[in-house]
């Protein structure tokens, strides 16, 4: 088991390095733009002084060779220092730290909601395969899964914010502000959650040992919990892992629609403003988070399955 974790950690480090490097070079393909972007932000585009751009080039080492810049930057990443935001003129890391908890809260709430509906629904669908509940839930989740996040978000705003006035349209001011964005995010995931849970459960139910359990005459509850559910547990873990991945991408949209002050909207702003350091910081941190969570999910999955835990892995 330990060997497995170590191996995966090493791969993860490699991936993280590659991700940072890729991001860096994607964003820095045209270095000249950086200085121009800074000046643009500072002066609002009115005073694009050549000399100012020169000074900025020098100040931020933007005229040094690429590999030097890259190396310095990489060291910075190591120390979790992504530089100063062009737009806000504050350390990138400070802003990210301020916003990260908000995204985390939103994401976890959405995962919880989606799991709350998706897992039981998937399990029940599998137990009553091809009957009314199964067909209904599959059709319903298919429909819901096809609705794009921004549409469902807008519809929810119209109904629950504007017409019914139950929740605010945006921002994070009240306790109820989290409801609509979380529901929007969850709606996007519930279809996949249900389907994967159903498939996982069906796979377990048709195994030989389920028939053997029935042959032993044990209580139906024991059969469902100790045999079926226990074997479907790895599927649940996979499903939750997938959802978290979806959140990191989907949060960009949802946070933008609901003006939720999180990492996603920060990233979107950075793109619009060509705020390079902020862009790098957000992309890398979001991707790091994604990778770390995937690793965690894989480890938990392996730990749950004795076949991996007790053999070489």
């Amino acid at each position: 088991m330990l060997k497995y974790i170590v191996k995966r950690l090493l791969v993860m480090l490699l991936v993280l390095w590659a991700v940072s490097t890729m991001t860096y070079f994607m964003v820095h393909v045209t270095p000249g733009d950086a200085a121009t972007a800074i000046v643009f932000n500072l002066t609002g585009g009115t005073n694009m002084d050549e000399e100012l751009i020169e000074r900025i080039n020098k100040r931020f080492d933007l005229d040094k060779p690429v590999y030097v810049q890259y190396f310095n930057w990489l060291l910075g990443v190591f120390r979790m220092d992504f530089g100063i935001s062009y737009r806000y003129n504050m350390p990138v890391m400070d802003m990210i730290k301020a916003r990260l908890p908000n995204t985390a809260r939103l994401g976890l709430t959405a995962v919880f909601l989606s799991a709350l509906i998706g897992i039981p629904l998937g399990v029940l669908s599998a137990l009553r395969q091809n009957r009314l509940l199964d067909h209904t839930s599959r059709v319903a989740t298919l429909f819901i899964g096809s609705v794009p996040g921004f549409l469902s978000g807008l519809v929810l705003i119209i109904i629950f914010s504007l017409k019914l006035k139950w929740f605010p349209t945006s921002g994070m001011k009240t306790a109820g502000s989290i409801v609509l964005p979380a529901v929007t995010l969850a709606l996007g995931m519930v279809a996949t959650t249900t389907r994967m849970m159903r498939t996982g459960m069906l796979d377990v139910l048709r195994q030989d040992f389920m028939v053997v359990a029935k042959a032993k005459g044990i209580r139906r509850s024991s059969m469902l919990v100790s045999h079926a559910f226990r074997n479907a547990l790895p599927s649940i873990v996979t499903v939750i892992g997938l959802q978290i991945g979806h959140i990191l991408g989907g949060s960009v949209l949802v946070e933008t629609i609901f003006a939720w002050p999180g990492l996603g909207s920060l990233l979107n702003d950075a793109v619009s403003n060509r705020d390079t350091p902020m862009l790098e910081g957000c992309v890398i941190l979001i991707t790091f988070g994604y990778t770390a969570i995937n690793l965690l999910v894989d480890v938990v999955y392996a730990w749950l399955d004795p076949r991996v835990k007790y053999t070489e892995g």
Partner: peptide
């Protein structure tokens, strides 16, 4: 009672073998 074929698939991979024998009595 039954003694099924195919030991590799007839046993629950995520339960100890002792429990699987014990539950023949205890979980009825």
């Amino acid at each position: 009672v039954s003694v099924p074929q195919s030991p590799s698939t007839s046993l629950n991979p995520m339960m100890t073998v002792g429990m699987q024998v014990e539950e023949c009595l205890t979980r009825r």
